[in-house]
Computed example of a mutant assay.
Amino acid sequence: MQVKNIALATLLTAVFAGNAFAAQPVSGEGPLFLNEGVATSTLSRDAVRQEAIANPPAAGAYTAVAARAATPSSQFSRAQVRENTREAIAGGFRVKSGEMS
């Protein structure tokens, strides 16, 4: 009797769990935003190209070249920095590292 009840309870649990998830939208299905108007461009390809040439996008503000140019070069060599760090640690300075830094 207990085996039958366990099997029935398992079956009912699976059925009810499936129904609970069936009411939710699948990923990518909603909301659809169907009330938005659709507009097509009336410009030709050449007009768009000419506008892009006349007003180029801002470049250089977030590029690697601009970041390198904005970074000041250090006045210390690598060996000097390592030596200063060792001296600071010997003097009681704790280097912050790990998750809690």
Rank of each mutant, 00 (worst) to 15 (best):
M1T: 13
Q2E: 10
V3N: 11
K4G: 10
A9R: 09
T10R: 14
L11R: 08
T13G: 03
V15M: 00
V15E: 00
G18S: 06
G18R: 00
N19Q: 10
F21I: 06
A23M: 05
Q24G: 08
P25W: 00
V26E: 13
G28M: 01
E29N: 03
P31Y: 07
P31N: 02
P31W: 04
L32S: 15
E36K: 11
G37K: 12
V38S: 05
A39T: 12
S41C: 09
S41E: 05
T42A: 08
S44H: 03
D46H: 09
A47D: 05
A47T: 02
R49S: 11
Q50H: 06
Q50K: 14
A52V: 07
A54Q: 06
N55E: 06
N55S: 08
P56Y: 01
P57S: 11
A58N: 12
A58Q: 14
A58M: 09
A59E: 14
A59L: 12
Y62N: 15
T63N: 09
V65R: 13
A66C: 09
A67Q: 10
R68Y: 08
T71Q: 15
P72G: 01
P72M: 03
S74C: 14
Q75Y: 08
Q75S: 11
F76M: 11
R78Y: 07
R82G: 03
N84P: 03
E87H: 12
E87G: 06
A88I: 02
G91T: 05
F93H: 02
F93T: 00
F93C: 00
F93L: 01
V95A: 00
S97K: 08
G98K: 00
E99M: 05
E99T: 09
M100C: 10
S101W: 14
